[in-house]
Design a protein around this nucleic acid. Sequence first.
DNA 1: ACAAATTTAGACAGGCTTGTCCAATTCGTC
DNA 2: GACGAATTGGACAAGCCTGTCTAAATTTGT
Lengths: 208, 208
Amino acid sequence: MSVVDAAAAVFCREGYAGANIDLIAAEAGVSRQTVYNHHGDKEKLFVAVVRDLTERCNAGIFATIASFPDQPMDLEADLVGFAVRMNRNCICNRDGRFLRKLIQAEGERYPELFAEWREQGPGRTWSALAARFARLAFAGHLAIGDPDVAARQFLALVNAELQITFMLGGVPTEEEVLRSATNGVRTFLSAFARKKSPAGKQAALVHA
Amino acid sequence: MSVVDAAAAVFCREGYAGANIDLIAAEAGVSRQTVYNHHGDKEKLFVAVVRDLTERCNAGIFATIASFPDQPMDLEADLVGFAVRMNRNCICNRDGRFLRKLIQAEGERYPELFAEWREQGPGRTWSALAARFARLAFAGHLAIGDPDVAARQFLALVNAELQITFMLGGVPTEEEVLRSATNGVRTFLSAFARKKSPAGKQAALVHA
DNA sequence: ACAAATTTAGACAGGCTTGTCCAATTCGTC
DNA sequence: GACGAATTGGACAAGCCTGTCTAAATTTGT
């Protein structure tokens, strides 16, 4: 395991103040001196950890957004699949959990460091997702008033049942992720499905 | 300010490891010795803080749930009002923010301490709220499949636009709270409104 | 195989924190 | 005002952690 990865784990587990360089070195399998040679001091190491996590998480999120169903065959199933991918690959994985915890725990102490994350992360994520929903609406699959609001509400809904687990730093099971996504997408579609034809396969009909 | 209150503030700001008893004593306006006289040691003090916050937060939450609109005049307005009260009095206030942060930061280190919170807090909150929604559904104001799911989704929706602010430990403005609640309730009602009569005042008609 | 660069173990100083002890002072109550 | 209880400030030992230094060992490139 690399030094930054080990440091991420220890900073998350123990908090910035509680993290101890000897432990990080041991966990990384190197000597303490090597940690200092590579990263200068504790604060620089912390910054490196946050930058590393931010970069990887953003990459994962945008890769996942690229898989958003633009031409859905089965809107519910496709959105559930998307939500599950988003959760599994970005929110619940190691990087996602670590970054979230560091932001929550140390965000107030390093405002400029996390301001960068805030702009590049949630800001762009929401924009990109909103654009995808706008496209679905434009294509007649959904009836959406404000795509930005819809995007945020989509994320909130598919995570609705995982909040507590996230709060305590736990990892939800695959089944919990699927159930929360399914319930969330159903409610989302109840709210934003096109109102004209009540039946399920309206989208396919529009394009037929 | 009491010792526990000062300790809550410092534990939140600095994390458990980073919190220093001298600072707590200074912030509380007492001598360090008094802190030790009253609370034994740092860990006992921390436990006292968490218990105190948990208790007050739960009291606030249940008081707010008691104000849930059982016989709504205007369902949207009443639910928005409820959501705003919940946010302002329980989630965004001092106790709520502190407790959330402590759970996120130290939840893994004190599992038994926060297990208590988990059972008494979210568990009972969700049950109580689900019961209120079930009642609304039974009275014909809503069409709800699973009241527990609906309750969690309601909370997720009305907080959808405040997540980032919460993550960074900030306090949303009154206007942000209202907007998030309004958008959330609208979507909630789009999803769970009774389907039979499409007009707005269906609830009133049913009772007329 | 050799030389340069890197890594290692350990010692070390300096600083900070916890928790205790104690004498002096203040406070509450009668 | 007097007396017991609580509070205070400060000194103190013990421990831990950071960050530096050094000499030895190991790896790397050629």
